[in-house]
Design a protein around this nucleic acid. Structure first.
Length: 349
DNA sequence: GAGTCGTGGGT
DNA sequence: TACCCAAGACT
């Protein structure tokens, strides 16, 4: 054991957060927590963890649920494929693994929604196996401490960092080791303005010694965002309204939304009025209001959305892809965050 | 294997 | 404001 580990372990014992998934070694609960935390901050994920394990305390509970229920619980957390894969894998574990979570890294890695990071996390934390978790925190920590300029989002970078992580992985208490490194990155060696003046590693850290902290880690790829224009229709039919399920391989897959008209270009208010109700339904409708434009930013898209409030008689020949629901039941459906906002503005339900 | 998948907080 | 990025995985 060397100074690097000793310093971080010491720091960890002093500074680690009291997080709910650190009170258990149940692989099911560790699994849930790790998936929730994929690309998600602890501050955002913690309440979802509590909600989730309260409703689905075991893998059998999760497997017995419907996907709609799981997505509803996941509503607002984003990256909804995580919820769909979690549900899929829960059913697989119940049906093919007798309800018992696999206890070997390579078996865990086969499961849908579990990649190298999550398989290592579950292996080390729940099963005490020496597999290193190489997450964003550890890329940042290693790149600075060892002075590695290889881009962390390159093929070579991934291999290089994983190799180091394996080399410094102890045989005893690998779960604590992994969590200590990640916690250190999350709280101490943070992306911007890391706390180098109070860092136990400052004297041995390459970046700190060379003044390269701000330059590391190196990341090359920059994402490009596309722009989309969404016009949702709140079809106000007395006690009822309509929703549709997003079935395509697109954002928000399998979530629900108000009937949507997407356009290539932004529409003026007059153009929206002239559209009427663009769903081919033979109906008399009265546009009550058109909301202001709402900007909604996703990782790869910028959405500009409005919601059009229309009053109408019952829709007889409306496409069956639209679901007629009681307004007060709208909260039972999993919907994107953007629509939560519109529902609040229009005071629906 | 580059693109894609959400949302929220920080600077 | 605009950008970064967060306990990544899938296609």
């Amino acid at each position: 054991m060397n100074d690097f580990q000793d310093d971080i372990y010491g720091w960890y014992l002093e500074n680690k957060r009291d997080l709910p998934w650190r009170k258990t070694s149940d692989p099911y609960l560790i699994w849930i927590s790790e998936v929730i935390l994929q690309q998600t901050r602890v501050a955002q994920g913690t309440k979802y963890f509590h909600r989730f394990i309260n409703k689905f305390p075991t893998v059998k509970h999760l497997a017995s649920a419907s996907e709609d229920e799981v997505l509803k619980l996941w509503q607002g957390l984003g990256y909804y494929s995580r919820a769909r894969n979690l549900h899929f894998t829960a059913k697989l574990i119940v049906n093919d693994y007798k309800g018992e979570f696999p206890s070997e890294y390579n078996e865990i890695l086969k499961l849908k929604g579990i990649g190298p990071y999550t398989a290592a996390a579950i292996s080390s934390i729940a099963f005490n196996l020496p597999h290193p978790t190489v997450d964003g925190n550890i890329y940042r920590l290693f790149s600075r401490y060892y002075g590695i300029e290889t881009p962390i989002d390159s093929h070579n970078g991934k291999n290089e960092f994983y190799k180091i992580a394996k080399e410094i992985m102890p045989t005893n208490n690998p779960g604590m080791h992994n969590q200590a490194l990640m916690e250190f990155g999350a709280l101490q060696c943070v992306p911007k303005s890391p706390k180098c003046t109070f860092c136990p590693l400052a004297l041995s850290c390459y970046a700190s010694k060379k003044g390269l902290v701000k330059k590391l880690p190196v990341k090359t790829k920059k994402i490009k965002q596309s722009v989309r224009y969404f016009y949702f229709y709140y079809i106000d039919n007395g006690k009822f309204t309509y929703l549709e399920k997003r079935m395509k391989n697109d954002i928000w897959k399998n979530l629900y939304q108000f009937p949507l008209k997407e356009t290539e270009k932004e529409l003026s208010e007059m153009e929206v009025i002239n559209l009427g109700i663009p769903f081919g339904a033979n109906m008399k409708a009265n546009i009550k209001s058109i909301s202001t434009k709402r900007k909604h930013i996703l990782s790869h898209q910028i959405l500009y959305a409005r919601i059009v409030h229309v009053e109408t008689e019952a829709l007889d020949n409306f496409s069956t892809k639209y679901i007629r629901i009681n307004k007060k039941d709208i909260s039972k459906f999993a919907i994107p965050r953007l629509l939560e906002h519109f529902i609040e503005v229009l005071n629906i339900g």
